[in-house]
């Protein structure tokens, strides 16, 4: 077993364990902290896959923004969940069965393609793992300019929408209630 394989197995195990703790932890704050561990594990796997830029984006966007946002939301709403019964649905076993059936189906599909088990990483064509190519492809009208702009419009819409939804109701409306 090579060093890379050991690194992969350890990272994968930690990522998976943290993922299980995210869905199983009774306290929401703990679940959010485990989510950070899981996201960091995926960032390490991105490095193993030579996607350096994506690893950095994973740390900045997922850990730096989304996880912190979730922790903020958990803190703003945490008082209710400690005293409103169990943290999981009464039918959680049904969810477990569905997840296991899905897992079985996915694994059966993956094992049906023997090429996946043998495929090794081919040599990267560019020295910088394609970072320059990625940058130019995002602003090239013949390649991915349109998806890039659509993503920016989506982010703007989400920004305005989130502010409009989360803002408290106007004063007169409160009085009318």
């Amino acid at each position: 077993m090579s060093v890379l394989q050991v690194v992969f197995l350890v990272t994968g195990f930690v990522t998976l364990l943290a993922g299980v703790m995210v869905v199983a932890s009774p306290k929401l704050i703990h679940a959010a902290l485990w989510l950070i561990v899981s996201l960091a594990g995926v960032a390490v796997l991105f490095v193993l896959l030579n996607a350096d830029f994506l690893a950095v984006v994973q740390v900045v966007v997922y850990i730096g923004a989304i996880a912190i946002l979730i922790i903020f939301a958990a803190m703003l709403t945490r008082r209710v969940m400690t005293d409103s019964g169990p943290t999981h649905n009464p039918t959680w076993w049904l969810a477990l069965v569905s997840a296991l059936v899905l897992l079985g189906g996915l694994l059966a599909l993956i094992l049906q393609v023997p090429a996946f088990a043998q495929a090794g990483p081919t040599g990267l064509p560019l020295a910088d793992s394609g970072l320059a190519d990625l940058g130019t492809s995002l602003v090239d009208a013949n390649r991915f300019l349109l998806p890039f702009e659509v993503a920016s419009v989506l982010l703007l819409a989400a920004l305005i929408g989130a502010m409009a939804v989360a803002r408290p109701a106007a004063k007169p409306e409160e009085g009318a209630e």
């Binding site: 890379l4 992969f8 998976l16 896959l49 969810a95 569905s98 090794g120 990483p121």
Partner: peptide, 29 residues
């Protein structure tokens, strides 16, 4: 060398854990 199937298996496991979380959690967060 890490086979591609290892990544796919780990990804499938992680996805199933996420599905369980979505279906079983009572808390919207």
């Amino acid at each position: 060398m890490i086979p591609l199937s290892w990544y796919l298996t780990l990804s499938a496991l992680l996805f199933s854990v996420g599905v369980f979380g979505v279906l079983a959690r009572r808390n919207a967060i």
